Lab assay of single mutants.
Amino acid sequence: MAAGGDHGSPDSYRSPLASRYASPEMCFVFSDRYKFRTWRQLWLWLAEAEQTLGLPITDEQIQEMKSNLENIDFKMAAEEEKRLRHDVMAHVHTFGHCCPKAAGIIHLGATSCYVGDNTDLIILRNALDLLLPKLARVISRLADFAKERASLPTLGFTHFQPAQLTTVGKRCCLWIQDLCMDLQNLKRVRDDLRFRGVKGTTGTQASFLQLFEGDDHKVEQLDKMVTEKAGFKRAFIITGQTYTRKVDIEVLSVLASLGASVHKICTDIRLLANLKEMEEPFEKQQIGSSAMPYKRNPMRSERCCSLARHLMTLVMDPLQTASVQWFERTLDDSANRRICLAEAFLTADTILNTLQNISEGLVVYPKVIERRIRQELPFMATENIIMAMVKAGGSRQDCHEKIRVLSQQAASVVKQEGGDNDLIERIQVDAYFSPIHSQLDHLLDPSSFTGRASQQVQRFLEEEVYPLLKPYESVMKVKAELCL
């Protein structure tokens, strides 16, 4: 049975990233139509530049190519590739079939990587351009969430054990800070992308030097003109047959890092959902379990974690691919890159769409948070109580021993009897502590235990987050809708 299948058929496997999760716009960027249309555009740009620099290419040939950029006979191309065992030459023939007058000058002087690699770089750039505003929107939604809850005390956790208090907004800023680093890295790697350009079979530009009869300047002009037509500021000066596969490492490393950030955020949300302090959106008709109707599973956060793990592992592909590119190139890269580049971007696209949807509907339960604080705060307040007693004339050592005994009794009630923490009640009825009984409410005010959390939130948002989001103001209103 021949390899390949009808990918629109229910009898043929289709990647869930495309069929179930990723956005239509990201799927289109990695589609065959987008790819092969870009090949034709690159052939047109090459012909236009070659004509401008004096090669015998007519206006009629150029116009014929322009008129057929979208006229792609995919069936013919597939048949040609089956016959020739070469995808680029299959599309040269297919393009030439609908451009008979231009057929002889299509791909003039070029090698397969002229269309293959340059198209990949265009796709990487455009895919990054799709991700950047999506990530900015996630940051914006979380920034709104953090600002609104900047002063809401909550129990902090280290080692997932109760620690000092923080605020809900401050905790959210930990998430935002990681995503801001990801946004900066995505922008950097996007701006650092260079075009492969017009380089020939081993990167020496020998074929173009021959076409222009040894004119170095025209060869350099050709490279520059096509690079500018493709919208790049610069091209690699040095290439082998391909652009260095280190570029793929750079791009997928940034995406993998984004995956790590999203995994951490969504894990926190899942843990908070278990504590009943916070939940992701839950639709009115949504079913959490087929057997347990009360369940409210954090399905979206779980999906993000599941896909983020996949995204983090994909960076190993370009690392290994770059390491086995012998001399000017081997074909070890080809099949692998067809999979890992598309999957990385479709996965990143999915987790950003999902995280935006989550961040637009996060639900906080202040009463649950308050109750958990009441359970733990008495123990945390013991040092403040000791200091207040010393100020009232008591002995630190005597007070410490009193607190120690009462704390152990209260802990026994919590752990052995399943009761509430009654340390404060014990202190309130103990005559030894009568000098500070009137101060206990103040000493137990949760806001006095959150330090500068709310001020940190305000400063972080104003100095770091809002300036970073400013270039994306025009796209901030787009909502994230999930079908599944």
Score class of each variant (00 low, 15 high):
K101W: 08
V429S: 12
L53A: 11
T119S: 15
H310C: 07
L331Q: 04
Q325R: 02
I339F: 14
T313E: 03
D430S: 14
K66N: 10
Q41H: 15
L55W: 07
S301A: 08
M76R: 14
I62T: 09
G361T: 13
V92M: 10
E376H: 06
E81I: 00
T58A: 12
V457G: 03
R300M: 12
T111S: 11
K75T: 14
I424H: 13
R303E: 02
A47K: 03
F232P: 01
F195Y: 14
I351P: 02
Q61L: 08
I106N: 03
Y21C: 01
T347E: 07
L131A: 15
L377M: 03
P298Y: 01
L165T: 00
D398L: 15
G200W: 01
E401A: 15
G4R: 14
A49T: 06
T330I: 03
L377E: 02
G5Q: 06
D317F: 00
S454M: 10
A22H: 09
G418P: 03
S359V: 11
E280W: 00
G451H: 01
M26G: 01
C305Y: 01
Q325G: 12
V324M: 10
Q320L: 11
L42I: 11
Q61A: 11
Q205C: 13
V226E: 02
S289G: 01
G203Q: 01
L331W: 02
A344C: 04
E228D: 11
K134I: 08
N118W: 02
T119R: 02
H7N: 15
K66F: 08
V413E: 13
Q210V: 10
W175I: 04
D422A: 06
S290C: 04
G259I: 00
Q456V: 05
I72K: 03
G394C: 11
L255W: 03
L209I: 13
K246D: 00
H217K: 09
L222Q: 02
S290E: 02
F208V: 06
K391M: 07
K75D: 14
T330Y: 05
A90R: 00
V219I: 09
L468C: 15
E81C: 00
D129F: 13
S290Q: 01
V92Q: 00
R149V: 12
P16E: 07
Q177M: 14
E464P: 05
S289W: 00
E25T: 14
F460T: 06
C340G: 09
Q458W: 13
L155G: 02
W43S: 03
C399W: 06
E360F: 05
E481P: 15
A18Y: 11
G197W: 01
Y432N: 08
A322V: 15
A150E: 10
L121Y: 03
T242A: 09
K415G: 05
C340S: 13
I237F: 07
G169R: 01
S67T: 13
L362R: 04
A273E: 11
D445C: 14
S15R: 11
N297S: 01
D59A: 11
M316Q: 13
A77M: 15
Q51V: 06
A291H: 03
P24A: 11
D441E: 14
Q320F: 11
G8R: 15
N353T: 08
F28V: 07
K66S: 10
C304D: 05
S434A: 12
A103S: 11
Y432D: 09
S395C: 12
K75P: 08
S261D: 05
I123W: 03
E481Y: 11
A230R: 01
E370M: 15
L482Q: 15
L108F: 12
R190D: 07
R141H: 15
G197I: 01
V475M: 15
N118H: 07
L252I: 14
K134V: 09
R83W: 10
E464W: 07
F160S: 07
S112M: 00
H437M: 06
I385L: 15
E462Q: 12
Q458M: 12
S448R: 15
Q409C: 09
Q408H: 13
L183D: 03
S434C: 08
F345I: 10
R83E: 13
T242M: 05
G104L: 12
R459Y: 10
R404T: 06
M225Q: 12
Y34A: 13
C180T: 11
D215W: 08
Q61E: 10
A230S: 08
V405G: 14
Q184V: 10
P366K: 08
L121Q: 12
P133E: 10
F282N: 13
R234G: 12
Y294H: 01
T158F: 01
Q397L: 08
S407R: 00
R85M: 15
A480T: 15
L423R: 02
E464Q: 10
R196I: 06
D332F: 04
L319K: 00
A47S: 09
R37F: 11
S454V: 12
S207E: 04
A273C: 15
I62C: 10
I287E: 02
Q409G: 10
A411W: 07
R194A: 07
L183Y: 11
M292K: 03
V88R: 00
V324C: 13
G394I: 06
A22F: 07
F28K: 08
L275T: 08
I249C: 07
K199P: 00
E463M: 07
V414E: 02
T52N: 11
R270P: 06
T330M: 02
P435E: 09
Q161G: 01
R426L: 07
S207P: 08
